[in-house]
């Protein structure tokens, strides 16, 4: 796993969101073209929607977990830095990266939830 202070972390959350987005959109399109769920009027409770929702929650959860993990590491680093008293280290940059990373994970998690929630009410293939 990448360290929470790696600069790529600033984009990773949203990269996951983008992949999730591609998967749900293309997955839904393929399912709807080739094997749409049998009862179109049965409401939103069907395998397709359940799968979409499960994926949504799984992805959102893991993104929130990453945010939490980054935040923990950030706090730890700030605390240990204050103890050691060294002000020379490139802490501001590491902190900056970690803060932005935590925020993007939160954004990505929220974005995932917002994107997936329509599956609660809409029938998949009409």
């Amino acid at each position: 796993m990448l360290s929470p202070f790696h600069p790529l972390q600033m984009a990773l959350g949203l990269i996951v969101w983008a992949l999730y987005f591609v998967v749900i959109y293309s997955g839904l399109s393929v399912v709807c073209t080739h094997s749409p769920p049998p009862a179109a009027n049965a409401g939103a409770l069907n395998t397709v929607n359940l799968a979409l929702l499960a994926l949504t929650f799984a992805v959102a959860l893991s993104l929130f977990y990453q945010a939490w993990r980054g935040n923990k590491a950030l706090r730890k680093e700030v605390a240990s830095h204050a103890q050691s008293g060294a002000s020379e280290a490139p802490l501001p940059t590491r902190q900056f990266i970690a803060r932005i990373a935590v925020a993007t994970y939160l954004v990505a998690g929220t974005a995932t939830l917002l994107t997936g929630l329509p599956a609660l009410v809409l029938i998949p293939c009409v």
Binding site: L14, S29, I100, T104, V107, T115, A119, L122, I123, C125
Partner: peptide, 29 residues
Amino acid sequence: ITTGFISFGLWVHHMFTVGIPHLAQAFFS
């Protein structure tokens, strides 16, 4: 950063009338 990514997930909103399933439209909406 957020704008940079999310703006790649909007393109179908130019295509809401081509007959894509409503649920898929909702993702883009």
